[in-house]
Design a protein around this nucleic acid. Structure first.
Lengths: 166, 166
DNA sequence: CCGGCCCACGACAACCGTGTAACTACGGTC
DNA sequence: GACCGTAGTTACACGGTTGTCGTGGGCCGG
């Protein structure tokens, strides 16, 4: 089941970032938890599976040498272009625009015509790695309390989020 | 003739960066002018054509959202792998390693096998854009004094530099 | 009700990269 | 030899990102 929520520290372990980063990103609006935002000290953020995907993409970008600023733009784009099946798509950035490329040829075309730098993120591998991390986490620490997605009000019509559709 | 040198401010105009950046990069060792380093206040840095190429690559990377830190790694690599004809090569970074890819297929292969982000810089377009900028500069301001490469001691055996070999 | 634990929050420090501006030294001219 | 423009030098400031640490509020077991 990927419908449950994930707590802050667990998220950090899953995507491989520090809590400080997760916190900072939430505060600065890069990625607020879609299941439950923080409501003052003592509360708990609850992240959805889609959130995890986005976070992992950001992490990939940072590892690839992309600045957080550029990553913000990339995520903004990604949120608005949720192609059906993410697992076979590549996220391509060229500094200005962003594109979702389905085939390798498409990328070669971009290379031929474009004059800028291209940053390419194969989303398939992101999903695979994330899923692997989740099962590994569940093995070590079999699903705890407070992780069932449904914090009272469950009909939110906010920003569209990523979701698996393979 | 691309054998002449270029002064600091001219370099800024050519590659499209601020003087502050050029200065900072020179001081922090990202790219020191290969023809003549700064020797105290009042002196003048003199950049070679190869320097300009590297600078333009850096500029491209920054525009593409790559952090300066990653750009440093990229340039380090580029210095050590001067393939003969740059104009048909793509510089590919994956965060860890760097590669020079000659064909589009090569990149597709990398995409298939790799799991990280790829940053791709088509060097051909860099050279083209740079050359165009140089001729445009010469038109507006026909070659001034102090730009002939040969600051007294001309037999430097330092770090290998990029050079056009098309 | 009490004691702990988890975790958001706040404040601070540090680093990097860049902008701005004043200062200074060199090279040329008159 | 004094003047002046050019350009490197120095100092300061600022925004963005992350690390560290102490605080305090909520939740749960006893």
């Amino acid at each position: 089941m990927r419908d449950r929520g994930f707590g802050g520290p667990n998220v950090c372990a899953l995507v491989g970032i520090s809590y400080r980063q997760l916190d900072y990103w939430a505060r600065t609006g890069l990625l607020e938890p879609s299941l439950a935002p923080a409501t003052g000290s003592g509360s708990r953020r609850l992240y959805s599976y889609g959130d995890l995907v986005e976070l992992k993409v950001i992490k990939r970008l940072l590892d690839g040498g992309v600045s957080l600023r550029a990553a913000r733009r990339a995520i903004d784009f990604l949120r608005q272009n949720l192609a059906g099946d993410l697992s076979s798509v590549n996220l391509v950035l060229d500094g200005k625009r962003s594109i979702l490329a389905r085939s390798g040829e498409e990328i070669v075309d971009l290379l031929a015509g474009g004059q800028g730098v291209l940053n390419i993120v194969p989303l398939g591998s992101v999903l695979r790695e994330l899923d692997a991390a989740i099962v590994e986490l569940d093995e070590r620490r079999p699903v705890q309390a407070g992780e069932t997605a449904d914090p009272a009000g469950s009909s939110e019509g906010g920003t569209p989020r990523l979701d698996r559709e393979a």
